[in-house]
C-alpha cells in the first residue's frame, strides 16, 4: 500500500472517535500492540532524546524497502509511533522522503508534533527521513 493510502486509512479509522477519550484509548491500544524493538537494538545510538519521553528507532533495508522498528518508555508516545510506523515502514526511501505528515493534523494529534511538546516525535520523523536519505544515497553510490 502507498503512504497516501495508508494515511487515508488512518484518517478514516480515527474519524470513528467522537471524543478525545476514545481517541486516546485507541492510541494507547496501538501503543500496547506495537511490536517492540529488540532489546539489543535499544542502544544509545538508536535513542532519540526528547525532553520527557525516550524514543528508540531502528531502520534496516529489506528488498528495497525500509523497515522501521521503534519503542518508547511512554505509552501514548508509543501509540503515536505505531501510527507513524504503520505509514512509513515497508516503503521505499524515495516515498518516505517525499511523504508529508499533515495526516497527523487530520487525525487530531497535531499537538503531539509541536516542537515544544518535547516528546521526541518531531525528531523521530526527522530521523526517519534522514534514514531514508541515507539509504537512498547508499543505493545510488
Amino acid at each position: 500500500m502507498t503512504i497516501a493510502t495508508l494515511q487515508e486509512e488512518l484518517i478514516e479509522e480515527f474519524s470513528l472517535f467522537d471524543d478525545w477519550l476514545d481517541k486516546y484509548e485507541h492510541i494507547i491500544e496501538l501503543g500496547k500492540s506495537l511490536p517492540l524493538i529488540e532489546d539489543t537494538l535499544k542502544t544509545d545510538d538508536k535513542l532519540i532524546k526528547g525532553c520527557q519521553s525516550k524514543v528508540w528507532l531502528h531502520a534496516e533495508m529489506k528488498e528495497g524497502n525500509i523497515i522501521f522498528t521503534a519503542d518508547s518508555d511512554a505509552i501514548i508516545t508509543k501509540g503515536i509511533i505505531a501510527v507513524l510506523i504503520r505509514v512509513f515502514s515497508n516503503q521505499t526511501p524515495e516515498e518516505i522522503i517525499q511523504a508529508d505528515t499533515s495526516f497527523i493534523d487530520e487525525i487530531g494529534l497535531k499537538e503531539h508534533l509541536s516542537p515544544t511538546r518535547a516528546n521526541g516525535l518531531v525528531s523521530m520523523i526527522k530521523q526517519m527521513k534522514l534514514y531514508a536519505v541515507a539509504f537512498q544515497a547508499q543505493k545510488t553510490t
Binding site: 477519550l21 486516546y24 520527557q52 519521553s53 518508555d73 511512554a74 501514548i76 508516545t77 518535547a118 516528546n119
Partner: peptide
C-alpha cells in the same frame, strides 16, 4: 508502571495543568 508523561497528557486533556518530566 506508568510514565509521568502519559499521566500529564491525559490530565491536560481534562483541563488540568501539571508539570511532568
Amino acid at each position: 508502571g506508568i510514565h509521568p508523561f502519559d499521566i500529564g497528557t491525559i490530565v491536560d486533556k481534562l483541563g488540568i495543568a501539571v508539570r511532568t518530566g
